[in-house]
Design a protein around this nucleic acid. Structure first.
Lengths: 146, 146
DNA sequence: TTTAGATCAAGAATAATTCTAAAAAAGGAT
DNA sequence: ATCCTTTTTTAGAATTATTCTTGATCTAAA
């Protein structure tokens, strides 16, 4: 049976770490609100709405913890600030150079295996990261109207 | 006829910009020496052997210029310092988590097209970036001997 | 040779992130 | 409940790669 992630945190899903209010808030920001791959600072801004006393350092801590226990993913585009996303399915990211938006792109299972890549024999593959750049349909449409 | 990059810089390949000693040195470091995807600081260290008076700021400038005219590629792995590589063929990068080495992986032509990716209709794809992480054959072999 | 623009160099500035140290919170045992 | 230990949070300092600034230098063309 395929496990469907419930997007709720528990002490178990945190690998025994404490399920603190701060960790919940940070996670909720990523899951509840627009899934727009916010940066740490953006998460911080949104988290303050739910918990005004939270600090940026804590947001960084929580994001790192959540990433390490595998509850969320850190998304790095070039050398920009890291973004975070709660989508745990294997997926790529498309970055629109017009609107700076990031959207998830479903990955085919074959892309996640070693087979299609010309890796040297004996390589142990742990992780594949696919990032695409271009113009999203919306920005494409808008630019034609000018 | 397929253009084979000659790995020599000219005023033309620089898009009219000047072919200065500094730009040549920086480019030579990437082409001549071990193709190990050095960072800007590493390029700086090696460039000083050829031109002791060169400054780090200039190395950054040259690397940016060379990247912008398409003579080299900037390689970003997570949020680590950018690395640079003179391989202009479409290729992915494999990062070995044991030795921190980066090697080029030949990309199949189909990976560079839009077709195999589930992009929303109307998306204009400009660039694909594939990065893999794991253990390289050498480190794999070494770890078995312990 | 003069001149305008390009490039370089050194150091200051920036920005994202990490580190540090002390305060607060959370469990567990008594 | 109270004490004790460990975890977590917080605020600010520190770090690091990179970019910016400014004046000096170089270059190509007039």
């Amino acid at each position: 049976m395929g496990e469907t992630p419930k997007h709720t945190l528990s002490s178990e899903s945190l690998g025994g770490l404490r399920l603190t209010k701060q960790r919940q808030v940070v996670y909720e920001v990523l899951v509840d609100e627009k899934r727009d791959h916010p940066t740490a600072s953006e998460v911080f801004e949104r988290a303050k709405d739910k918990m005004p006393s939270i600090s940026l350092a804590t947001v960084y801590n929580c994001l790192e913890t959540l990433t390490q226990v595998g509850a969320i993913k850190q998304v790095n585009l070039d050398r920009e600030a890291s973004r975070y996303c709660p989508n745990l399915n294997p997926h790529a990211h498309f970055y629109c150079t017009e609107c700076d938006g990031v959207v998830d792109i479903q990955l085919a299972p074959e892309h996640c295996a070693e087979s299609p890549w010309a890796l040297p024999a004996g390589t142990q593959l742990k992780e594949i990261d696919v990032t695409m750049k271009g113009v999203c349909p919306d920005c494409q449409a808008n630019s034609k109207q000018n």
